[in-house]
Design a protein around this nucleic acid. Structure first.
Lengths: 297, 297
DNA sequence: TTGTAAGCGTTATCAC
DNA sequence: GTGATAACGCTTACAA
């Protein structure tokens, strides 16, 4: 056409075609979660990279407004064709409202009470069970757990996995302190657990494990000789910790990527759109459980 | 109108009115920056909260695609009425392209060689000078600096501020090691500086300072008795560090908020739209420089 | 292959 | 004030 810098009017195009090529991304989380963890950055990167590849725009709702306001705002924005939404809390009116609205939606995480939604998630229970079992196999007996944020599906499920593995091992002494996925929370909880003379701690997240390291260092407690430490996430810093952290690797950008691709398939009415995806996790064993002197298996 | 759940068609409305109520947010940063620091989360929160209050939608570009691809994608999306863009690197073709395009744009950070753009920033040079001067005033003489990421305006400016304060104090021994704003980078750089027997370190960011703490702890070096440590940002964890960190407070969500409000004013052709805003910073003095035994002023 | 007209859903204008 | 109508810029279907 014209060799001038001509910008086609997307509003007119979408009016004519009925398509907009825009999806919504709703991250309605407590501020503490979004701020403390690289988790959401990694997720965002996975989603935005993928959608950019597919020439799809992203509208973002990340405000800390009330659920009603967020929900109303999203649903009023008629030109988002579909929605990706984080579903970390067990009960979240925003998620329920989106699902009820009929707008095609893919969750990252899942609804415990409703398995009809499309979602991408990992098997938190199974992964937590595996890593706790790893601690058991090392000969640890007084195994503690610092939970993730209570009220989140992931936090509660990892706690369930911990209890299952302890049940299976016949270990009836449980040492559980609530955490909140942050390093600061991990530090405070670790002080409590160390007072209970645990010989291993499974942390709800790698950030939490960082706090454990600080607490142990202050107390002069050696990792892993006196206390083995395991985390969850395998963030970029985890392999660089001293000692390197045993953890569960979940490919966070991949979760975002799969969620984006799933939504696009649903919007294309592609018949092979997998609607519920559980991504694999991997136990990454490093020196925070395996290293150190003898005495442990 | 109808009491059915009627969703007005925004594409049609915007075609008729010429307005869309959508702005673009372009965060084209190296992955390491976005992932390591809570800085971008805080910025995002400030921007999205403010725009939500003003009933303005946000389209996000955060992909790690090439500059050309990002730029083309943003400019092709005709319905963004204005753009907020982070400008941390000294040279960023995306920023240059946006400014050249004529689409109303507000930068967070600024262009060193071009002062015609709208931007929100802080006085990095002055703040770095102040905090270095604080270390001088304490009687420290072998003051080191771990830079921010080289090639960023903020990192380079803080280095300039360090040198200015050292010049003013007549201290000709400079101890400068390049960092990258991350904790890991800070740890590695701190080991180098400690080998040089510095008695104070000004870190380019609070995350960097965290790495210094780890290095000092390993070496058995007391903060602040043997080495005073100062950071930059005043993130949420900084007051909780042990000892609490002296740092420069920059209100990051406020930067995002002001950038959003500035853009909205420009779009409204409001005559009082301040186009270049330098937000104040505040020296926050805590125990990492002031505490400890006697011997220092 | 090239060109013309109708229509998308809303706002704004201009009669009445 | 109320109600019909053009216009927004693009796509698409159909006619030349």
């Amino acid at each position: 056409m014209e060799r001038t810098n001509y910008r086609p009017n997307l509003a007119a195009r979408s009016l004519a075609t009925g398509k907009t090529g825009i999806v919504g991304l709703v991250i309605h989380e407590p501020a503490s979660a979004v701020f403390s963890d690289p988790y959401f950055s990694a997720m965002l990167a996975g989603i935005t990279d993928t959608l950019a590849d597919e020439a799809t725009g992203v509208m973002l709702w990340m405000s800390r407004k009330t659920e009603q306001e967020t929900l109303a705002s999203v649903l009023a924005t008629s030109f988002v064709e579909g929605i990706i939404c984080t579903a970390t809390m067990v009960n979240d009116p925003v998620v329920d409202g989106l699902l009820a609205s009929g707008v095609p939606t893919v969750l990252i995480g899942h609804r415990r009470h409703d398995d009809s939604a499309n979602y991408v998630d990992i098997d938190n229970i199974g992964a937590a069970e595996d890593i706790t079992e790893h601690l058991v196999d090392l000969g640890r007996r007084r195994i503690g757990h610092i939970t993730g944020l209570r009220g989140t599906v992931s936090g509660d499920d990892r706690l369930i996995g911990y209890h299952r593995a302890m049940d299976k091992a016949g270990l009836s002494d449980r040492f559980v302190v609530d955490g909140d996925y942050t390093e600061e929370g991990g530090y405070a909880a670790a002080l409590e657990l160390l007072d209970m003379n645990v010989d291993a701690i499974f942390a709800g997240s790698d950030s939490t494990a960082r706090g454990i390291y600080t607490a142990a260092r202050e107390r002069g407690i050696k990792i892993p000789d006196e206390v083995a430490v395991a985390g969850f996430d395998d963030l970029s810093f985890s392999a660089e910790m001293d000692p390197p952290l045993t953890t569960v690797r979940q490919n966070i950008p991949a979760q975002g990527r799969i969620a984006a691709l799933t939504l696009l398939k649903i919007l294309d009415r592609s018949p092979d759109a997998a609607k519920r995806v559980i991504l694999p996790t991997e136990l990454v064993i490093r020196q925070s459980t395996l290293g150190g002197g003898a005495g442990w298996a």
